[in-house]
């Protein structure tokens, strides 16, 4: 490779301006965070083949909290939580500063909303969702004070997998994980697999707001 630079410059053009939501192109990850995009995809749009959910535009307080949960071993330790196990080593060695940076990057990304893959009774799902409102918000926007995760914009298959994780001792099992244990208890409101499908398909209709951080 004798860098034939001029030749390739002929048809290289820099794209000016931005593709990110807020007018500033902040979605180019710093080198250390390119890792996130390997599984979670370009602009963290999510990749169902790798069971890596869409994270685009996720509130940074929530990203921080989840990375910390992984670091503490509250998430991603159960042998059946394969995707969690894959994720955990990424978070295990992160410093607080790196977590801070990752959260900032995640919040700065944007991508189209994910495709719906689960069919359930949206009306019934909406009814079931009433007991989630207090923590997760009417629009699924989340609640920082109560540490209720934002749900709007997540992949439906991911929400389903997490509900099942909570119901099956794979998440929210550690007593130090206060919010996780709360959610584990709350997940028991759903009595059947059908309930899970219904509520998941309702949550998939909630529209996230673009974040301007």
């Amino acid at each position: 490779m004798k860098g034939d630079v001029i030749k390739s410059l002929v048809f290289l053009l820099l794209v000016a301006g931005s593709l990110s939501a807020n007018g500033k192109d902040r979605s180019i990850p710093p080198d250390d965070l390119v890792y996130c995009t390997v599984c979670h995809g370009v602009n963290l749009m999510g990749n169902s083949l790798l069971k890596a959910p869409r994270l685009s535009g996720m509130a940074s307080w929530h990203v921080k909290q989840q990375l910390q949960s992984f670091r503490h071993g509250w998430r991603g330790v159960h042998e059946k939580d394969l995707a969690g196990l894959e994720m955990r080593p990424m978070a295990r060695e992160l410093t607080d500063k790196q977590i801070e940076q990752a959260a900032k990057f995640v919040a700065s990304t944007w991508s189209d909303l994910p495709r719906k893959t689960i069919k359930g009774d949206v009306g019934h799902g909406k009814m079931l969702y009433q007991s989630c409102l207090a923590c997760h918000g009417r629009e699924g926007e989340g609640n920082e004070t109560l540490r209720g995760s934002p749900l709007a914009g997540l992949n439906d298959w991911y929400v389903k997998a997490q509900l099942e994780n909570y119901q099956n001792e794979r998440r929210g099992h550690n007593t130090e994980d206060v919010y996780g244990t709360q959610m584990k208890a709350a997940s028991m409101v759903l009595n059947s697999e059908v309930d899970v499908l219904d509520i998941v398909s309702y949550i998939a209709t909630l529209q996230p707001k673009l974040r301007q951080e």
Binding site: S8, F11, L12, L13, L14, V15, L19, D25, I28, V38, H40, G41, V42, M45, G46, N47, S48, L49, L50, A52
Partner: peptide, 21 residues
């Protein structure tokens, strides 16, 4: 930086499981 290249043809060996993302 985000850059763009245009060409007449493209040969892609990126692992297929990345393509949907």
């Amino acid at each position: 930086k985000r850059k763009q290249l245009k060409a007449d043809w493209c040969f892609n060996s990126i692992p297929s499981h990345f393509m949907p993302s």
